[in-house]
């Protein structure tokens, strides 16, 4: 009775013809193709990412090389296209290098939190009962604090440095992502196709892998992408307060902090890191928005 082959129908092998029909992700991509605003900001993000990756090649100067003679010079002074900072370092080079740290601060904590929070959320949602209560009430405790305060408190406890900053931010993002994953899982779990999968004798892991994850990933992904800009801002905030990246490593938040003093001497130059943060986080936000619209396919 347990032999599978006994239950097989007579069948013949066939060649499956080419799939002419669009899959879900293909249809999402198709919708994005006509969303010019999202595409524009996606291009900006790609540019920023590429500039950061190739910073060592593109930067005209060493970002940490100071010069007493060239302090606080305006844009276009000699070879300093974007001027210099309060220690005479080239702003363009520092912005390019700073993009690396800032993007890292934006992406790594969100990615880590998505994996951890998503996993916890799916477990909580699928198991329900006391497992759910245990996980979700723990999350609620973290959720009760304002995120800035929580980030400051955690990285204050762990000490400075970009690694600890990222850990702090990860911990800040886990509860909200976990909550999104949990509510999506709870919703999907009660649907008929999950029942049908159970009725076919599938194991819990198989059901989660084939039927739950695909349906939970979408909402979690959208939410996480909107967290990137928050993460960049929070990371910059931590650096600004001296809790994140340590000098002389270039970082947009840190640069903004140290250039405060020069705001009356070279206001335009001092605003540059702020502008970089603004453009980057705005772009991530708008792309995440566009993605949400594109993924909202009516089933």
């Amino acid at each position: 009775m347990t032999d599978v082959s006994a239950f097989r129908l007579p069948l013949f092998r066939r060649k499956r013809e080419a799939r002419e029909v669009r899959g879900y992700w293909a249809s999402v991509a198709n919708r994005l193709r006509y969303d010019y605003v999202t595409l524009f900001f996606l291009a900006i993000i790609l540019t920023i990412v590429l500039l950061s990756i190739f910073a060592p090649l593109l930067a005209p100067f060493d970002p940490t090389k100071t010069s007493m003679a060239y302090r606080m010079k305006p844009m276009g002074f000699r070879n300093f296209i974007l001027g210099t900072d309060e220690l005479g370092r080239d702003m363009l080079s520092r912005l390019l290098w700073g993009g690396r740290t800032s993007l890292m601060m934006g992406l790594v904590p969100v990615a880590a939190a998505t994996v951890i929070g998503g996993l916890l959320g799916v477990i909580a949602g699928f198991r329900g009962g006391w497992v759910n209560s245990a996980i979700m009430r723990t999350m609620d405790v973290f959720y009760a604090f304002p995120s800035v305060l929580l980030a400051v408190a955690i990285s204050g406890t762990l000490g400075g440095g970009s690694k600890n900053g990222m850990i702090a931010l990860t911990l800040v993002f886990i509860p909200s992502i976990c909550r999104i994953a949990e509510s999506a899982t709870t919703q999907v779990r009660s649907l008929d196709f999950v029942e049908a999968a159970r009725a076919s004798g599938a194991s819990t892991l198989s059901i989660i892998w084939h039927h739950i994850l695909g349906n939970v990933l979408g909402p979690v992904f959208i939410f996480a992408s909107s967290m990137i800009s928050v993460s960049i801002l929070l990371g910059s905030g931590l650096s600004f307060l001296g809790l994140g990246v340590e000098p002389p490593t270039p970082d947009w938040g840190l640069m903004l902090s140290t250039l405060r003093a020069g705001i009356y001497v070279q206001p335009l130059v001092c605003a540059l890191p702020g502008v970089a943060i603004f453009i980057t986080s705005l772009s991530f936000n708008l792309v995440s928005d566009g993605l949400r619209q594109a993924m909202d396919v009516k089933a």
Binding site: V4, F193, G201
Partner: peptide, 18 residues
């Protein structure tokens, strides 16, 4: 039906499980 699976995968799922 699972909205994220092509329908032939939905049909094939049971035998795969077994």
């Amino acid at each position: 039906l699972n909205p994220r699976l092509p329908v032939q995968d939905s049909v094939a799922y049971g035998p795969r499980v077994h």
